[in-house]
Design a protein around this nucleic acid. Structure first.
Lengths: 253, 253
DNA sequence: CGAGTGCTTGAGGGAAGTCAAGATTGGTGG
DNA sequence: CCACCAATCTTGACTTCCCTCAAGCACTCG
């Protein structure tokens, strides 16, 4: 593997923080985030202890080994978590979409670098406040546990992909994952048959880092899928999947 | 990848269950398992709701897609969790050692096959009882959350390994992991300098499935490490590491 | 319009996979 | 106790998939 060039260091937390109090009632993820478990009147507690945070694409929210100061729920955009070997080889070990939690409660420092993959907004808590919420509201803690158990299952799927799938299967799996999580305009999941257009939140290089490949190999698999008629490359960053079944078939499993 | 041959199907849960009540006070993992968080008098609750379970090497505790009926804490031995692609390619996605929890609370069925990698004993709960314990004892749930967050961190490390490390680094990492978790006879962790002998809980084929390699490649890396003097192969299953620093250096990171 | 960035494509090489013997080990029964 | 057999592990020769290196192409933006 070729080591990675140094990347845009972006803004550190203190710089890009915006202390607008959160309006939970209009929060775009209020029904699906961990907060959803709290009874309405207790959301005030959240509002008082959290703040909105805007991050621009490329902004680094935490470096590998950093002291953990905040825990946040993603309200829009995509945040990536990466780990890096000493010689620069890099692996994306997690993607956080809207309603996902980033940051590590109950640990002194992060084992991962946290970075905005797209422009993003977060509902951010000071770590100690977040942990206090967990202690005081078992329903909140319980929901976080369920969320993390789901994440663990997803991580196991990803381990299968990284360890055993071919390059083509990896790319197909990645696109299938994005297509499946794609929501119709009304917020419901797309019907299984319908064509879906996916706006890729990652560059070719980032997809490579996610799949354990090189950018060139990723690009070649995109071309292969295009030639096979499984995807349409609207432009570099937007992909249409006419038939998700066909894509899923190539994903292995 | 070559598909795997079918493996010993072993015993299903109902067959190998032994209903001895658990003696928590003499439980080998009472200080480190999730149970440790419960105040002494509440351990009775555990004793009443759990039972000892012996599993022989190769016994299958659950198949991929099985309904989850039990959640258990490993009290001795090693249990492996695997995922399999339709053509038989296999990946070990988790190893549970003494004090680790296997089984999936809050889900209808397992996403992984659970199998004893060595002879093992477990402290097993009916899933509904386990979930009830979590609900009634926030401290218990809280500890489980912390344990699962640690597992998630470990999974991320493993994703880095699977996606980006060379075969030699993978094998070195695996041996380093085992050496580090090896305990001195008195139960404390070994001093960093001391030579450690590790009894491998997995066959070459299983190590390959854990590392995303083939058995032949694993064997070659063992030979390479032996020739380099980094390890001594006492026999096929026991490895001595004279200098863990040297091994760690080869593990990458 | 030229420079910069990100993506695609090609040619060649190398690390790990595949296929195929052997070598060890461990268990079983004569 | 030792001979035999099956299972596991090691080693070798060859192949393949993906990585590396290197152009060339397509946008975007000053």
């Amino acid at each position: 593997m070729r080591p990675h060039p140094d990347q845009n260091t972006g803004l550190r937390p203190a710089d890009s923080k915006a202390n607008d109090p959160i309006a939970c009632d209009s929060c775009p993820v209020r029904e699906i985030s961990v907060c959803a478990m709290l009874p309405r009147e207790q959301r005030k507690i959240i509002a008082n202890r959290s703040h909105n945070r805007k991050a621009n694409k490329g902004d680094v929210l935490a470096l590998e080994g950093d002291r953990v100061t905040h825990v946040a729920s993603v309200t829009s955009g995509v945040v990536k978590m990466t780990k890096t070997l000493s010689d620069g080889r890099q692996q994306i070990v997690g993607l956080a979409f809207a309603s996902d939690v980033v940051g590590r409660p109950f640990a002194d420092d992060t084992a991962v670098r946290i970075e905005a993959a797209t422009d993003a907004t977060l509902c951010s808590f000071e770590k100690s406040h977040f942990e206090q919420l967990l202690r005081e509201h078992p329903a909140f803690e319980s929901l976080l546990l369920k969320v993390k158990l789901d994440e663990l299952d997803a991580a196991k799927d990803w381990m299968l992909l990284l360890g055993r799938k071919s390059a083509l299967e990896k790319v197909a799996s990645f696109l299938a994952m994005l297509a499946d999580r794609q929501l119709a305009p009304d917020g419901t999941r797309m019907p299984k048959a319908a064509a879906v257009t996916v706006e890729l939140p990652l560059s070719r290089a980032e997809i490579a880092d996610y799949l354990g490949l090189t950018l060139e190999t990723v690009s070649r698999q995109f071309s292969k899928l295009k030639d096979a008629g499984v995807i349409v490359l609207d432009d570099g960053r937007a992909v249409t999947v006419p038939d998700r079944q066909k894509l899923a078939a190539l994903a292995g499993n």
